[in-house]
Amino acid sequence: MHPAFSVIFLTTLLGAGQGLFLALVTGQVYSRIHLIEAQSSDYYLFGSLIAFALLLTGLVSSFFHLGRPERAWRTATKWRTSWLSREVIVLPLLMVLVATFGLIHWMGWTQPFVVAGEDALPVDASLLVGVFGALVAFALFVATAMIYASVKFLQEWASPLTVFNFTFFGLASGFMLAAAYSAFLGNDLVTFFGTWAVIFTAIAFLSRGASLLRNRRIKYRSNLKTAIGVRHQGIAQTSQGFSAGSFNTREFFHHRGPRTLTMVRSLFMVLVFPVPVLLIGLAYVTKSPNLPILAFLIQYLGLVAERWYFFAEAQHPQNLYYQRVS
């Protein structure tokens, strides 16, 4: 597939935004049950603002992917059948929840309604919104990932691993961002988020590694034989029927050599996994406030490369029909 930057940013930014929001909610839950120390409402406010901003940028960049963004509202109509439609419903919902979450903290509406146990878990509006938001964030991971995973023709994508990857990449980058955010503020949650970020990165490594392995072994269901219905080993296209390209030659192929692909893969394998983990570890040792920020930035960059590769790697069967000009 042709890796469109709008979609690369859309998915990576959303992922980081969702992850960050989930990190905030996790942080809040942990602090409510006193596993980690409590944070100021500003912490949550600005945190959710960042998450919101990421979601918003993601949303905006998605518009660049649309031919007719002014009609985007129409997308909400087919939620029964279309994962894209579902994403389009879930994303604004999440944005509302993230905003509400921030607002609640800002306004200080954090008086608990009920307290479970002996101050074990005070439940307030922000927690309710947070937990609900967390569920929606997960739903959004699923919806976004399913947009890709549900296209059965793209066999590289059509796998639960795609959902795992999207989710764990989101979580990893979100928690990494939370760590970076905390480091920036200089509070003590760096280690907390950092540890989770490392865990998620590790899981993402496993699941992405699994999908890479899987994709390497894919047996494509379509080939030239099924494409044109002629049973012979030696079929080659001599003409795709037009000389200078069309939507079909632009949208479904990256027009890069295999070397570029390998390079990008190695790049993201380094940038997404070992480097950020190392940097976080180093930050743990050195207590540097900058390293976690660097770790996030590098991981995000890596994720952009990962997403580019995600698209480029996917072989659309329609490409069988568009191979040669003459």
Binding site: H65, L66, A72, T75, S82, L84, V151, F153, L154, P317
Partner: peptide, 12 residues
């Protein structure tokens, strides 16, 4: 149509 191209991805 909003030109999201999604249908084209879903056509083999």
């Amino acid at each position: 149509c909003i030109g999201c191209k999604y249908c084209s991805w879903a056509c083999p």
